[in-house]
Computed example of a mutant assay.
Amino acid sequence: MKEEYVVLVDSNDRKIGLMPKLEAHEKAVLHRAFSVFIMNSKGQTMLQQRAADKYHSPLLWTNTCCSHQRDGESNLDAGKRRLFEEMGFVTELNELFSFVYKAPFDNGLTEHELDHVMMGHFEGTPEINPDEVADWKWMYPADIKEDIENNPNKYTEWFKIIFDKFYHHLISGKVNEGQSK
């Protein structure tokens, strides 16, 4: 398997180099990433449960998909690529906002990412990749918020951070039918 590299960036999202993905997570180096949220016409968000053999956060619930841009790949192209690789479908995505976060894990790895948060719409049933995803479900954002408060150990560390920002973005009225205002 070919080693994956992440794009190292400064706080203004300017590329400053490349590093193997695992090394970047071991050293907690700031790198570019993205998080995709898929909504349906009922206003529900598609969540995925990470596969059991993931090297961190196995079997925890998280947003529809997330990963890292490849060198030279646009944010939206990366989001569409990974959405297809993990969930088996493609849809148009809109970038909503980006921000920097840092989330350490029990295994010594740390996510330190400049995360580009995207949203799209889908009405069908995904064809999940079992190497990446154990399960999936639709939930209303208010129910996700409540479940995170009541059962935080069921969710990935980054999802708890990103979802809070996504939820406030939704309820502030900055998103209407999947379009940024």
Rank of each mutant, 00 (worst) to 15 (best):
L93G: 02
V36A: 01
D10P: 07
K21D: 07
F84C: 07
V133R: 02
D71I: 06
M19F: 10
A78W: 09
M118E: 11
F37D: 01
M87L: 15
S98I: 00
G43H: 12
S57K: 00
V6T: 09
I38Y: 05
D164L: 14
D164K: 15
W138G: 03
K2E: 12
E4A: 09
E73A: 01
A24Q: 10
D147K: 09
H112Y: 14
D13R: 00
K27M: 03
F159V: 00
F34I: 05
W136N: 03
G120I: 12
W136S: 05
N129Y: 07
E157R: 13
T91F: 03
A52C: 01
N150M: 08
K42Y: 12
P58C: 04
D164M: 10
F105H: 13
E127R: 14
K54G: 00
E113K: 00
Y167P: 12
T91W: 10
S74M: 02
H56M: 08
F159R: 01
Q44F: 12
Q69M: 09
F99Q: 04
H68P: 04
I162Q: 13
E132Y: 14
D143T: 12
L30E: 02
S41F: 14
F84P: 00
A52S: 11
H31D: 05
S35G: 10
W158I: 06
K2T: 10
V175F: 01
N151K: 14
A103R: 02
H169F: 15
S74V: 03
S41Q: 15
Y167Q: 02
K145Y: 11
V36R: 08
